[in-house]
Design a protein around this nucleic acid. Sequence first.
DNA 1: TGACTTTTGTGCGCGAACGCACATACAAAT
DNA 2: ATTTGTATGTGCGTTCGCGCACAAAAGTCA
Lengths: 209, 209
Amino acid sequence: MGDVLYETSTERDFVYFPVSGIVSILEMLQDGSSSEIALIGSEGMVGISVVLGGGHQPNRAVVQSAGTAYRVPAPALYEAFHRGGVLMDAILLYIQALYTQVAQMAVCNRHHNLQQQLSRWLLLSLDRMDTNEIALTQELIAGILGVRREGITRAARVLQDQHIIEYRRGCITVVDRQRLEEVCCECYKVVRNEAERLSSRTRTRGPTN
Amino acid sequence: MGDVLYETSTERDFVYFPVSGIVSILEMLQDGSSSEIALIGSEGMVGISVVLGGGHQPNRAVVQSAGTAYRVPAPALYEAFHRGGVLMDAILLYIQALYTQVAQMAVCNRHHNLQQQLSRWLLLSLDRMDTNEIALTQELIAGILGVRREGITRAARVLQDQHIIEYRRGCITVVDRQRLEEVCCECYKVVRNEAERLSSRTRTRGPTN
DNA sequence: TGACTTTTGTGCGCGAACGCACATACAAAT
DNA sequence: ATTTGTATGTGCGTTCGCGCACAAAAGTCA
């Protein structure tokens, strides 16, 4: 956990297909601050710039929750992608889902408050895990979201007082997921619905269409 | 100007390749507020979901500055893209550039103030125009950026007092572009440099590579 | 058990942007 | 030239998150 898979502007030698765990994509600023722009779990891949052809990207990929992943050498995936067919179609659809996630982050960052954003982040994380426990300190969560630690403390407190989450040092447990969705902004559902819509396209389309 | 090319969640029947003018991609929220997530000019295309395969996207494409564009029927572009070769490579690289732009918007929305964001938006717009005049009211700019009109008024005032821009009703003129870049946050340059890097890859690579 | 480190809690002033109200200024049309 | 509609200026209270300081609690290890 905390491993950096990709550093800003270094070549992507491998592409990762997570089986479990979560990878955070963080956009970095010169002053050291950052914001998460996407969460990637088993539904996706880390390293789209390999198939897009750009070689690298100005962001950082960090393991947020430990897990396993297939690690494919970049040239191999590049070749496979360019042979077309189902793999290419699936990856292209995933890129659209990722794009939607990043776009929604941008609006969410502007219009919604910290508590809503924390809720959104918890839900997106939960969808990519097999437990309802998130083992990160508030300090780390703050770093991921690009806010201060105290802000997370206060937002988490409110959620706990409402019996939606419970937490102790370094671990948040979601105890009422439904209410969490209710207090969350719409951004979570936009991202999730679009991801579902797109992934169902993969399943329902044959290799030639 | 102000024409809506795509509405949220409607099928993309055409793909647009602007020759002049600017198209804004706006992410909409239920309460009617929105944020621009990307600006597209002659360097790009409007309607990536056609090649990515998703059919539509949960956002809106609006003409920000009138101009001309090639309008290609979606199935035709889909076919051409899937034949591979230079066109596919170029579009994939463009998608990466667009992705970078959206990602940077997300960080910028969180960490930078209104004046910096207005500066960034002016610069990104200027790069896609052949004049240094932007013919939009502050009200419209506010709507695009997803902030209040008064905020734009005050930020624009500061820039004018520094003799970086001049404006009158419905028209902003950039008179000192260099200083505008200086007062702007790094986000502009990250987006522009990445776009340049990627587009130079298109030019320097042959059809078989 | 006691000392130490890390994590979380909280108080307070600051600054930025919101939200509203209303004043002023501009430009086109009659 | 006056009217009218639209665009811009500005004042003020509110909210939200930052930034700092420090307190309290929870683990960890000797």
